[in-house]
Write a protein that binds this DNA or RNA. Sequence first.
DNA 1: TAGTTCGGAGAACGGTTGTTTACTGGATGA
DNA 2: TCATCCAGTAAACAACCGTTCTCCGAACTA
Lengths: 222, 222
Amino acid sequence: MSHSLGVRQAQKQKTRQALLDAALGLLEEQSLSSLGLREVTRVVGIAPTAFYRHFRDMGELGVALVEEALGSLHVMVRAILAEQDAAEERIDRTVAVVEQHVRQHPLHIRFVARERHGGVRAVRQAIAGELDRFAQEVAAALKSQPASEGWRDEDVRMLAELYVDRLVTTAAALLDAEEDGAEGAAGQVVRRSRRQLRLISIGRRHWREDRRGEGEEERGEG
Amino acid sequence: MSHSLGVRQAQKQKTRQALLDAALGLLEEQSLSSLGLREVTRVVGIAPTAFYRHFRDMGELGVALVEEALGSLHVMVRAILAEQDAAEERIDRTVAVVEQHVRQHPLHIRFVARERHGGVRAVRQAIAGELDRFAQEVAAALKSQPASEGWRDEDVRMLAELYVDRLVTTAAALLDAEEDGAEGAAGQVVRRSRRQLRLISIGRRHWREDRRGEGEEERGEG
DNA sequence: TAGTTCGGAGAACGGTTGTTTACTGGATGA
DNA sequence: TCATCCAGTAAACAACCGTTCTCCGAACTA
């Protein structure tokens, strides 16, 4: 599977990865739409023209970065969803995993947060697509839980998006907290995030009893 | 107050505003760190060098845009907070106001969403500062409500941030929904957002009874 | 071994950028 | 009325940009 690449292909992938790494590094302090092709190749140590052997333009490189960035996070959240702990412990585990991920891949997080609403359409769409598949998985996991019995699919999806959004926001907030150097800032973000997830969890638990008898509203709209 | 500006100062403010407007327009399809000084002055129709009569650099213009963008939103949310409706109607009102604001000032919303994690530090900090004051106000309003009786300040603040974050996210989502042209996309965002706020509201209502007896956890950390 | 493929190098292109310096002409205030 | 102020102008600067075209040499294939 992996030993079957020739010397040539292996070298090409290596340079390609070097381009991605260099770009990711440079993107810590600027945004994709201002990142120059020459700037990236200069860091890698290759001629500007060699860039075209790997990507048509910076937008295409950006999309590749999206896949790389969301890929690893995808694996971790999938692991969380597979767990069967009680709500309380699960929340703590979830936040801990996010925290660890931010520490291990800060540049990936920064990139996603920055380009999610950034100036390059293709990259925005790529991120939106990944986060959507993301929410889809979370929704599927939530649906199979006893707490979701009697829930409409639309409401499960609504909750899933709320969770996913919270994770992304928390990750970005953690990054900001660590960068401006305030001592307990990161800890406060973690603690606050846990409580927000708990509040959502409580809202989830009481959703049906509170919404009883209002099930017919807004019929015929969706 | 306002009639007291001379012809000179009035004209200066006019071009300054023209610079802000031109920049805001250009920022619909790119990010601040890639926006050029010449690009802006070209749209306004003045010489590039005239830019320096108003701003030291693009970062300073960005900060001015932050104040302009968050200012109007500030007013509207303040109005919402002052209302005394029941939870249900208040949520509907809130989302409706956000929806209206997005329609009236789409460029401002786009700008804030994009530059909140964008590549210009000064602008990021300006936005973070404004949103913080924002959350502060929301927290104060929440605290004075009967539903917050017995809540710790830290938890009120946690809830306030959850609300503010939801508003910003909803506004950005609305913008995206309207831009990719899908027919009912905006409506779905609105409906989903309402339900998310309701779920949070339910969580709020049951927060204390659910957290009873756990008040001593995490002591000595904050 | 001979011929082909292809990642990368190098030079050159027209165009744009931020910034400086010196200047103009109308509003300003005594 | 007259000297001062100052928003905007004009020209020039070196630096950088994306992109094209041509070529090289090592890795491939047959």
